[in-house]
Design a protein around this nucleic acid. Structure first.
Length: 445
RNA sequence: CGGAGCGUAGCGCAGCCCGGUAGCGCAACGGUUUUGGGAACCGUGGGUCGCAGGUUCGAAUCCUGUCGCUCCGACCA
């Protein structure tokens, strides 16, 4: 996908709207990624939508790799389902309740355990159909008392939620480990160092609930962990997700050292970590996984026939990642004075070709040649063909954070050269036009 | 839900205390000169002052109500 900036819709803001407090919110507004429509509710503009979709695709690929199967459930749900689980009364004001024209109680789903359990109980009848993990990527609504920080804590948010169904707790643990491993891979691909931290399991108990936390100075909560986690190796792409022992190994390794959020913090255990390895920082929760056993299958009657023909209640778990929140988390983790610095894999564009003198035959020709080349090689390229001044173009490119800039100006071109700039480090290199083309041989997916 | 604020042009703000019919910077539009890190000059357009009621000869300004939004706290993917 390529785009000419002169014909694109990129409403940049030079000044920061006053309501934006944290850097990701400020930059998302300035870069024309989102538009607030109501407290905690946003429209996604072209640049923001591109990033959101790229994140969702990485999540989707890793969910699929782990064996989860994508579906799509509706945003609006019937209250009856929630009455079955007892959560219609229990949920409180965070749930947005609405009535349809027939005066039936409906709601805008804050999550989908009841609905997916309804689907599974009506079709899955045998232990042979297990294990099963269904996920979807859908908009959710939680009527937070106080939405804030832009899309970091919105009321409407995009969420990938997966739901696993197994015959017993041991099988459910393997399902949990599959998601645990998939999450490690997902966050690594997004360029994030996410550390699984033990989370409150509520009434279920056990050790099967983890929050995945990204360290960031603007994080919402205090976290404590062992610094070796930051250098742990990510599970490989060819990880065998059917290997019970293999995935248990991944889980054991990634839970071997101390890591806890403020709520779960154990001072004594943290003191046992060597002093030079103690990390005390702020963190952003980007994922949350947990096992809940028969919490929904029991009241909703979701059972299959076991090997002996007797009914067995399904053991479930659910696993969430918020793509819309991740957009903000990625900016919190990657920005500088000039603007956003996207990781390569989820940047809205791979390369920005900057024609410093639009209208000049030489720069127009060279910029066009490079742009067409990138298109042919499968890159997402943005061509800045506007008649803005060079300074403005540089500022725009830096603000929106495209990883590579190819700068085509009359001075360099007079010697047959263009400049390649890396957004992240700011390194610039003057190379021949041919060398520049040769540098971008094809996008590695 | 407690506490504190703010709604005046696309964005940032002044004007409000002390009522007299709206202004500044940026952005936009037209023009001239510019052109390698957010140019200069000249000109132009754009606002039922959140909304409703009240006081007054007259309300952005004073009073009442209402809606929206933000920040701090408690709560949450």
């Amino acid at each position: 996908m390529t785009m000419r900036l002169s014909r694109y819709f990129l409403p940049l803001l030079r000044d920061t709207p006053k309501e934006a407090e944290i850097v990701s919110h400020r930059l998302m507004l300035r870069a024309g990624m989102i538009r607030q429509q109501s407290a905690g509710i946003y429209s996604w503009l072209p640049l923001g939508l591109r990033v959101l979709n790229k994140i969702s695709n990485v999540i989707r690929e890793e969910q699929d790799r782990s064996g989860a199967i994508e579906i799509l459930m509706p945003t609006i749900q019937s209250a009856d389902l929630w009455r079955e689980s007892g959560r219609y009364e229990a949920y409180g004001k965070e749930m947005l309740r609405i009535k349809d024209r027939h005066d039936r109680d409906m709601l805008y789903g804050p999550t989908n355990e009841e609905m997916v359990t309804e689907i599974v109980r009506s079709y899955v009848k045998s232990y042979k159909d297990l294990p099963l993990n269904l996920y979807h990527i859908q908009w959710k609504f939680r009527d937070e008392v106080r939405p804030r920080f832009g899309v970091m804590r919105g009321r409407e948010f995009l969420m990938k939620d997966a739901y696993s169904f197994d015959l017993d707790k041991d099988a459910a643990r393997h399902a949990y480990n599959r998601m645990f491993t998939a999450y490690l891979r997902t966050f690594a691909r997004l360029g994030l160092k996410a550390i699984p931290m033990k989370a409150d399991t509520g009434p279920i108990g056990g050790d099967l609930s983890h929050e995945f936390i990204v360290l960031a100075s603007t994080g919402e909560s205090e976290v404590f962990c062992h610094s070796d986690y930051l250098n742990f190796e990510t599970p490989a792409a060819d990880t065998d997700f059917d290997s019970v022992a293999g995935l248990q190994g991944v889980f054991d390794k990634w839970t071997s050292l101390y890591a806890a959020t403020e709520e779960m913090h154990d001072k004594a255990a943290f003191e046992a970590v060597p002093e030079d390895k103690r990390v005390s920082a702020r963190g952003i929760e980007v994922g949350h996984i947990f096992y809940f056993g028969t919490k929904y299958s029991e009241p909703m009657g979701a059972a299959v026939a076991g090997p002996d023909g007797q009914p067995v209640l399904l053991h479930g778990g659910s696993y969430g990642i918020g793509p819309s929140r991740l957009v903000a988390a990625l900016i919190e983790a990657g920005h500088d004075e000039g603007g956003i610095v996207w990781p390569d894999e989820i940047a809205p564009f791979d390369v920005s070709v900057i024609n410093l003198k639009a209208g000049d035959a030489a720069t127009d020709g060279a910029a066009e040649q490079i742009y067409k080349h990138l298109l042919a090689k499968g890159y997402d390229a943005l061509l800045d063909d506007t008649d803005e001044r060079p300074g403005g173009k540089f500022a725009t490119a830096d603000l929106i954070g495209v990883p590579w800039q190819i700068i085509v100006g009359p001075k360099g071109l007079a010697e047959g050269k263009v400049e390649i700039k890396r957004r992240a480090g700011g390194e610039r290199e003057l190379v021949s036009l041919e060398a520049a083309l040769d540098r971008f041989k094809g996008r590695v997916a």
